[in-house]
């Protein structure tokens, strides 16, 4: 256990950019965090709070303004450039788009800190590159060019490059930013798998909170005044998540594990029904600023009736009864009503 704690340890770190002389543009200070081996860590926080800067500091691309980052108990300066690269690898948000660059050549660049001055690939380096491609499921793409593959495939290749670099710590800046939903899930799931099977410490920043909650072992949550860390579940239960977007109308839904826009409700409406039809009808009504209440608390209510595969929505208002065959028709009617 003790050894585990020592992979990465950040204490009293101040990050930002030096402006002139001793004046600094500090983005965040007093950062204290830790990461263990085999851990997938998600860095979460709103735009502009300093996630990328923190990651650049961790991966050695930028110097901390104050404080220190310990890698295996030692500071960056006590490692040579090459040794440091063998310990920490990095995937940035920059899209690598080089003409004629083959997937294999890109991934084999990861062997950079392991090869001689000419960068000659020994059989071991070729094997490691091939294995890295295999681990991310991209073996069959090896001879393709990097600008002929999709964004999701490219992200896998970039991850394979870090695996070829064979570093204990992998840092990724928003690896899911350009991806569609299935790819987002797959990439993060892949990172989870790699952290466990290869025993790596993987740190990534993301805005996809629900995916992070499902897959990450630990969350580093950047709030306005401090960084909170803990298992995603802990942060949900102690209501820390609610503080990310303090100044907006977003509220964290503890049961669903996702954010929801807080709206001011104007009118009340009741719904009779059950199952998915009830849930989605409720969502649609909430979008229209209705507050869904129990059966008889309002004069207006909707009855959902299912016959075979068909479904109809009946709007009952005092003595007026109207039937609709879709939620869309219902919402158009309600919108018109709201206007009058």
């Amino acid at each position: 256990m003790k050894e585990q704690e020592n992979i990465i340890h950040i204490s009293n770190l101040e990050i930002g950019y030096p402006i002139k002389g001793n004046i600094n543009n500090t983005l965040f200070n007093n950062i204290n965090l830790a990461g263990s081996s085999g851990e997938l860590i998600a860095l979460v926080g709103k735009n502009g709070i300093g996630k990328s800067t923190l990651l650049r500091n961790i991966s050695g691309l930028q110097e901390p303004l104050k404080g220190q980052i310990n890698y295996f108990g030692k500071l960056k300066n006590s490692y040579s450039r090459t040794d440091f690269a063998r310990m920490v690898s990095f995937v940035s948000t920059e899209i690598v788009n080089v003409n004629n660059l083959s997937v294999f050549d890109l991934v084999s660049l990861g062997r950079f800190p392991h090869t001689n001055w000419l960068g000659k690939l020994k059989p071991e380096d070729v094997n490691r590159t091939a294995r890295a491609l295999e681990m991310v499921g991209m073996s069959s793409f090896s001879r393709k060019h990097i600008n002929e593959i999709s964004d999701g495939e490219r992200q896998r290749v970039m991850i394979a490059r870090t695996l070829a670099q064979d570093s204990k710590i992998i840092v990724l800046d928003e690896p899911t930013a350009f991806l569609d939903l299935p790819n987002k899930y797959e990439i993060i799931h892949l990172l989870n798998k790699l952290s466990k099977e290869e025993n790596k410490t993987i740190i990534f920043s993301t805005h996809d909170l629900n995916i992070a909650i499902q897959e990450a072992d630990k969350i580093w949550l950047m709030l306005e005044d401090k960084i909170a860390e803990g298992a995603p579940e802990d942060l949900i239960l102690n209501e820390t998540f609610n503080r990310i977007f303090e100044k907006s109308n977003l509220k964290f839904d503890k049961l669903k594990g996702d954010f929801k826009m807080q709206k001011s409700h104007h009118r009340k409406i009741g719904i009779y029904g059950d199952g998915p039809h009830f849930v989605w009808t409720k969502k649609a009504l909430e979008r229209l600023n209705f507050m869904v209440v129990k059966e008889n608390e309002s004069g207006q209510y909707i009855k959902i009736e299912k016959e075979n595969n068909l479904c109809k929505w009946t709007l009952i208002e005092d003595k007026n009864i109207k039937e609709f065959s879709s939620i869309y028709d219902l919402s158009i009617h309600l919108k018109l009503q709201l206007k009058n």
Binding site: R81, A85, V88, S92, E94, L101, L106
Partner: peptide, 19 residues
């Protein structure tokens, strides 16, 4: 040659690979 290969994917990556 080795340095040029690393620089081609961008200076950030080159630096993170130990160049």
């Amino acid at each position: 040659i080795k340095a040029l290969n690393a620089m081609m994917v961008g200076e950030n990556y080159a630096k993170s690979m130990g160049l």
